[in-house]
Design a protein around this nucleic acid. Structure first.
Lengths: 218, 218
DNA sequence: CGCTTTCTGGCAGTTGCTGCCAATAAATCT
DNA sequence: AGATTTATTGGCAGCAACTGCCAGAAAGCG
């Protein structure tokens, strides 16, 4: 009959835009991470985070279901940037070349958050609750990669080879990220980020080479 | 001077053995999983689990830090079995052959828990909290794999190639496990388990082939 | 300005989980 | 056997993590 979202004679206060909501979450995220780094996750209460971010505790809990998920908006920046680059991967290019050309490691639109993102990654060691949301995030990325690979290989998204490739890629991304976070404890240098990209590109293209042999030979 | 654990004139009640503690945890785990499957995680309280398992709520919380970690003992059976097989991988054998010879997919010492384990794996979809502990568990397995691979390749355990291989392997294991859980919704058949092993062995050996090219050529 | 809808904050209440203490259990020593 | 020592258990109190409910404030529109 009618489209789902069309012809809305909208009447009251419009719901807040997704981007604005995401910006709000990111803002809270920054405060939360600073507190987490300073006094640990267990030592930081939801009330503290809310107060630091300048919202009431009630609305804080509306933005985040658990306090550990406060790190998600910051981390998402890094992971989503990688996924976006992958989505823009032209069919005629080797992955390694595409990454060299288009991937600026942790930075994307994140800009000033590079240090914070790496801080969080380091925090995830020794803070199991944070590590868990980190892993969940990478699994979300994995699903995004499934779509990209399925389209590229012309296979259904539930094909086992596609899912294996995607899982391997997101796993590689994770260890490379952990590695660069470890390497930049004393501050980020552009050299470290370049090295990270090289390492990631090399490992990724090898994983894909090994597996596409399977795909094409099967 | 003296060894750490030797010459103990132990006096009072001896602490309970690790195996016994683990058996107790496993027992509680079974009850918890049944409840989780029946009424969801959120709908199951710690008190309920404790009561079902026949212990006080207080001691229940001593055995499990969060109620979601109740699934861990059951899941560990499956993951640990795989790690044990990998540890016993003889140097002269191809991985795929070793797996065919020594790996009985989800079953090991688990024996009667196969269905429960697969139930939990299915539960992790749609129950994010359970999925998180599932992923954490696979990361523990990943670290175990790092040791195995480091010894086999004669490289330090923190070598990037070793960690990439281990991560890829544990990711493949996870995808394959999810897959067999999905395939056995209506009950396990030995054929399904065999197919699972074949799939896993194939994908794994390909990941390793691709990456050991990197290792040997670098 | 009235009307409508959405967002926020406050409050009460439930549940997850921890610290503390008394009671019990399992071992050794006399 | 009984005293002693150490480990585990269970009960209770209490805090922190959330959630549901409701009354306002805010943001659009005629």
């Amino acid at each position: 009959m009618k489209d789902v979202a069309t012809e809305k004679p909208r009447r009251g206060r419009p719901p807040v835009s997704d981007e604005q909501r995401e910006r709000q979450r990111l803002d809270i995220s920054r405060h939360a991470v600073r507190l987490f780094a300073g006094q640990g996750v267990a030592g930081t209460s939801g009330e503290q985070i809310a107060q630091a971010a300048g919202v009431s505790e009630r609305t804080f809990w509306r933005y985040f279901p658990h306090k550990e998920s406060c790190v998600e908006p910051l981390l998402t920046q890094s992971v989503d940037a990688f996924c976006a680059v992958l989505r823009a991967w032209p069919a005629e290019l080797e992955l390694i070349d595409h990454l060299r050309a288009a991937y600026t490691p942790v930075v994307d639109s994140s800009a000033g958050d590079v240090d914070s993102v790496l801080d969080v990654v380091r925090l995830t060691h020794g803070e199991p609750a944070l590590r868990a949301v980190y892993l969940m995030l990478h699994e979300r990325a994995e699903n995004a990669l499934v779509d990209v690979l399925a389209r590229r290989l012309g296979q259904p998204a539930d094909a086992i080879d596609v899912r294996v490739q995607a899982a391997a890629m997101s796993a590689v991304l994770r260890v490379a990220t952990d590695d660069v976070a470890q390497a930049t404890v004393g501050g980020v240098t552009s050299g470290a980020l370049d090295g990270h990209r090289e390492q990631l590109a090399r490992a990724l293209s090898l994983v894909l080479r090994g597996l596409s042999q399977a795909t094409t030979s099967a």
